[in-house]
Design a protein around this nucleic acid. Structure first.
Lengths: 154, 154
DNA sequence: AAAAAAGGTCAAAAACATTGACATAATTCA
DNA sequence: TGAATTATGTCAATGTTTTTGACCTTTTTT
């Protein structure tokens, strides 16, 4: 079976990823703008909020970016009191990252619209579709370093 | 049902989108690098290849960016002979975009790895999962302007 | 004591996208 | 026909995100 530019079946499925990802990020992006932060900050809040006590290195592995890429945004979140850091007891080189109460509130606001959107779709299509979607996305996600932190919990 | 940072079920599903999208783009990004182009160029090739005769404005609507954002990459693709433009017959203001033979070859190479990855996942999980995944992603994608161009074809 | 690891920071550069302004050619509308 | 609109192109300034590379401190491990 050849892979040509005329194969609409495949093209459509590829396009779906592009379009869906945009719709998935659209609303939180608008909310983030109100707080003068960007999608990177949202990601940082997301991972710190869901994996409290995360170290910088663990964060870098999850995001697959350099420390320089998170250093600025992380400092800004700290300045705005959305996150706090705590030195690890047993290894004082390691910083543990946590959300503050206002950080949790902001993350909740950002997350809420994504959950509402998702629940609306899953409620409309049914539980089997939700389970299937999760399985497919998991198959993609397992390639990512440290993504197992998320899959173990479910 | 409250939406808190402790709700692992929701967090996991949100994280899946992030991780899966990265895995989906990883391989074509590496191929693009070999050709000294970036993901933007890949997108342009993708939409022009799948919707031959697309106008600039239609492209801008699909990508949801400004004309300045595509002007550069589009010129580079033209310089590299991956695309050609043709003036519309009935409205000579409009440029129609097409892939050249080498443009089609490049797009095929970029697309191939995404299709292989996707087919591997769907073959492993089964047809029902594929259909469910498509339905969910479509529910996300319908919000996008002009994305109907793709859904009509299936 | 030396090496490695975790984190921080500075600088240069590239990639990506924006707003704003201005221009041309073609089409439509009053 | 003349005016307005549309499609496209380009220049400039700006902002964000991210990268590579270098260098540094502190702490832990060997």
């Amino acid at each position: 079976m050849s892979n040509t530019v005329h194969d609409n079946q495949h093209f459509k499925k590829i396009a779906l990823f592009f379009f869906a990802y945009r719709s998935f990020n659209e609303k939180p992006d608008i909310i983030a703008e109100k707080y003068n932060i960007q999608r990177v900050h949202h990601r940082l809040l997301f991972f710190i909020g869901n994996l409290p006590g995360l170290s910088i290195n663990e964060l870098l592995t999850l995001l697959e970016v350099t420390k320089q890429a998170v250093n600025g945004p992380l400092r800004q979140l700290k300045d705005k009191k959305y996150i706090i850091t705590d030195t690890d007891e047993s290894d004082k080189r390691i910083k543990r990252l946590f959300l503050t109460e206002s950080g949790k509130q902001l993350l909740d606001e950002l997350t809420e619209v994504q959950i509402e959107q998702m629940e609306s779709i899953f409620n409309q299509l049914g539980k089997e579709h939700e389970d299937s979607w999760i399985k497919v996305m998991e198959a993609y996600a397992v390639e990512r370093p440290n993504s197992k932190y998320f899959f173990d919990s479910l």
